[in-house]
Amino acid sequence: MKGYCRFAALAALLSFTAVAPLFAQTAAPPYEARLMRLSEIVGSVHYLRTLCLKTDEGWRDKMQELIELEATDPERRARFVAAFNKGYRSFASVHRKCNSVAIEAEELYRKQGLELASEIIARYGN
């Protein structure tokens, strides 16, 4: 069984809990749009947590792991990177300093990311 934990690491990072692995697929998965949104959310959270906590916390590394596991071709890889960068840049263009709005946005996006990762796992996982 070729299980892939592409969401497990990400969801664990978002929720700090373990998540069941998913089955591998060869074509673009039916959850592709959700996966791209999750990548965008991770980019946003990465920027905001780095801004407010002054530490990387491995968000970029976890996104890289997800890309390496999920992106089977250069075009798909580029979509992952673009989604992550879109999330990162959208907050970088607005928030230059950590404030209550940035903290609230980070909390909201982290919760959305956890819900989205959990939904993908629940619907498409084993």
Rank of each mutant, 00 (worst) to 15 (best):
K111C: 00
E32R: 14
R60Q: 13
I121G: 01
R79C: 06
A105E: 13
L13Y: 03
E68G: 01
R77H: 00
G3L: 11
E68Y: 11
R6C: 13
V101H: 04
K62L: 06
E104H: 09
R60K: 15
Y109N: 00
R77L: 03
C52S: 01
Y109T: 05
A102K: 05
I121F: 00
L69E: 10
H95A: 06
E75F: 12
A24R: 06
M1P: 12
L13M: 15
K97N: 08
S118M: 07
A102Y: 06
A20D: 11
Y124N: 06
R37G: 06
L108E: 08
P74M: 02
P30K: 11
S118T: 13
E75D: 14
R96I: 03
L10I: 15
N126H: 00
W59H: 12
P29G: 15
T50D: 08
E104R: 15
S90M: 11
L48K: 09
E40L: 09
G3N: 02
A82D: 12
R110H: 07
Y4K: 01
R96G: 14
L10M: 13
Y124I: 00
R110P: 07
P21F: 09
L35N: 09
A24H: 08
M1T: 10
S44Q: 13
A117W: 03
S39V: 05
E40C: 04
A24T: 13
Y47M: 04
A71L: 05
A20G: 04
R110E: 01
F16E: 12
S90I: 05
M36D: 02
A27I: 07
R110Q: 14
A33S: 14
A24K: 06
L22S: 00
E70R: 11
A11E: 10
P29N: 04
G87F: 01
D56C: 14
Y4E: 02
T17G: 00
G125L: 05
V101W: 09
